[in-house]
Design a protein around this nucleic acid. Structure first.
Length: 502
RNA sequence: GCCCCCUUAGCUCAGUGGACCAGAGCAUCCGCCUUCUAAGCGGAGGGUCAGAGGUUCGAAUCCUCUAGGGGGCGCCA
């Protein structure tokens, strides 16, 4: 209803309600606008309203109000922009959850960054967030992984559909040294999983990601599986057919819960796990960040939750589209099935975590993206991550340069277009955080950071901060500090460093 | 065949119902460092917003259809 204007000539905010009411009331929007404008009681920060055809009510922030924000923001530090909208509601964000049968691949990194920043956004808006990694530590793939290590120890080729590569060989050597050459498949799998989880944790740590909990799939099979199955059976939604156990959807296609081998399917595990989160552990909201190749699972899982009496709206699944990697003119698409294995570790070595994070955050999750390795690792102005970081470094330098200024700040003299434009960008920050958190769209942070950095660079170029006039200097220094704090908070929410110098 | 995402400037992408020329970065061309960091700033050129129809006072944005690209639809994970 109240929105930011795209065009500065139309003020800072506009109200479009009159246009929306016009249809229902069968009256001219301009009349409604005039009437409404007369009755508006505006916060003190706004100048008088303007009515623009065909029926907009435009609002403009007063320079005096903007100037009065400088000192509080400059002094607010890390709290600036945070809010308590969530009222400490328990929310879980589950992300990464890559199989512990191998190292983290670069294709996992996008979901890792998106999930982490969603968690940061929810924390910043007052939710009690738990970050969880779901560990598939049992089942077919785990056994296959154990068999693959065993084969490597014995110098045999990997089993059909098994795992291979240098990391398996390495693991085989380490396992043989520790467990002996005749260790069981189970013991080898366990050894490999522990080692992989360590390496995954190490990679995530380099990406500045830390989970609170690593949830073991195995733990679901200590009764909770049977409890859930009993409930489904009592609802009459389970049948046995062809030696397998099926979930009756009522729709066109039933789904297998237990294979003929007696093993649960991933679908069954998903049901057990999500019932555990939403019912047993009582998270009011759960956000899962999945790769787009899991899209087909969303509806059937929600359907199953619903019949179990759990409101499926409490679960939000963010599907992150796949990433392709560009090196020079070569483009490699990274999907799970293509088996392209650029590891996250290699990419972190090559381009660093700031660039990886920033690049992923420059795209909305539902857009396919191309990760340009050459661009990401360039230490030059072509690399967008430096643009924002450089703005922060410049302001940090200004702060040092002006440390000796003592006078009382003359905030009312921050009246140039560059200073006021910068202020308008700064005061938007809490709205940006709230909107990004509500929409679960981390990329809004990156776009804001770019925009704020642009205002900072223009300000820096056109307005000399440290000048002979001490009261003006003092005011500009505080404005610089307010901008620096805001940019630092934005970068912090993105998990990107805000360097003092570059 | 069915489901999901995408199609906007040469390239990579924002914008997803409102207001004069549809935005940014890169790339191309032209300017700006005796002054707090030029990893910066300013300017120029460049677009039938894939196509068609519809809803609306108004559509890049919503609805339908078509075309193209990607992903999924398995007792795989």
């Amino acid at each position: 209803m109240v929105e930011r204007t795209a065009n500065p000539a139309h003020g800072d905010y506009s109200i479009t309600l009159p246009l929306k009411l016009a249809r229902e009331l069968h009256r001219r929007p301009a009349q409604i606008a005039a009437e409404l404008a007369g009755r508006l009681s505006l916060p003190a920060g706004f100048a008088d309203v303007e009515i623009a055809p065909p029926g907009f009510i435009n609002l403009r922030l007063r320079p005096s109000w903007l100037q009065a924000q400088v000192e509080p923001i400059a002094g607010a530090g890390a709290g600036w922009g945070r809010s308590d909208l969530g009222h400490e509601l328990p929310v879980q964000v589950e992300f990464v959850s890559s199989n512990p049968t191998g190292p983290l691949l670069f294709s996992h990194a996008r979901g890792a960054v998106v999930g982490d920043v969603i968690a940061r956004l929810l924390e910043a808006t007052g939710f009690a967030v738990q970050r969880e990694y779901y560990v598939n530590d049992t089942g077919n793939q785990v056994r296959l992984f154990g068999e693959s290590i065993q084969a490597a120890i014995r110098g045999q080729p990997a089993p059909e559909g098994g795992y291979q590569g240098a990391y398996v060989e390495e693991m085989a050597r380490a396992a043989a040294a520790k467990l002996g050459k005749n260790a069981t498949v189970e013991a080898l799998a366990e050894f490999g999983i522990v080692a992989n989880l360590e390496s995954i944790r190490r990679d995530l740590d380099r990406l500045r990601i830390a989970h609170h909990a690593w949830f073991s799939e195995r733990s679901l099979y200590q009764g909770w599986d049977q409890d859930t199955m009993a409930k489904l059976r009592s609802l009459g939604l389970v049948v046995e057919r062809d030696g397998a156990v099926w979930f009756v959807t009522g729709g066109d296609k039933d789904e297998v819960l237990y294979k003929r081998t007696g093993e649960p399917t991933y679908f069954a595990a998903d049901i057990f796990y999500h019932r555990d989160k939403l019912e047993k552990r009582g998270y009011q909201r759960v956000v899962d960040v999945w790769g787009a190749d899991h899209q087909g699972q969303v509806n059937r899982l929600k359907q199953a939750l619903e019949v179990l009496g759990i409101d499926p709206a409490r679960l939000t699944v963010i599907l992150v589209q796949l990433v392709s990697v560009r090196r020079g003119t070569e483009i490699v698409r990274m999907s799970r099935r293509s088996g392209v294995g650029i590891t996250l570790e290699e990419m972190l070595d090559e381009v660093g975590s700031d660039a990886v994070r920033y690049f992923f955050l420059l795209r909305s999750s539902d857009a396919h993206m191309e990760f340009d390795v050459d661009l990401a690792k360039q230490q030059s102005n072509e690399n967008p991550v430096f643009y924002a970081q450089y703005a922060h470094a410049r302001l940090s330098n200004v702060r040092k340069f002006g440390a000796a200024v003592q006078a009382a700040p003359a905030f009312e003299r921050l009246d140039s277009e560059w200073e006021l434009d910068l202020l308008r960008a700064i005061v938007r920050w809490p709205d940006v955080v709230r909107e990004a958190a509500e929409s679960l769209e981390p990329h809004r942070l990156a776009f804001y950071a770019n925009e704020l950095a642009a205002r900072i660079h223009v300000f820096y170029k056109n307005v000399r901060v440290v000048v002979d006039d001490q009261p003006v200097s003092a005011a500009r220094l505080r404005l610089s500090e307010a901008a620096r704090v805001t940019l630092a908070n934005a970068l912090d929410l993105m998990g990107v460093a805000a360097p003092e110098r570059m």
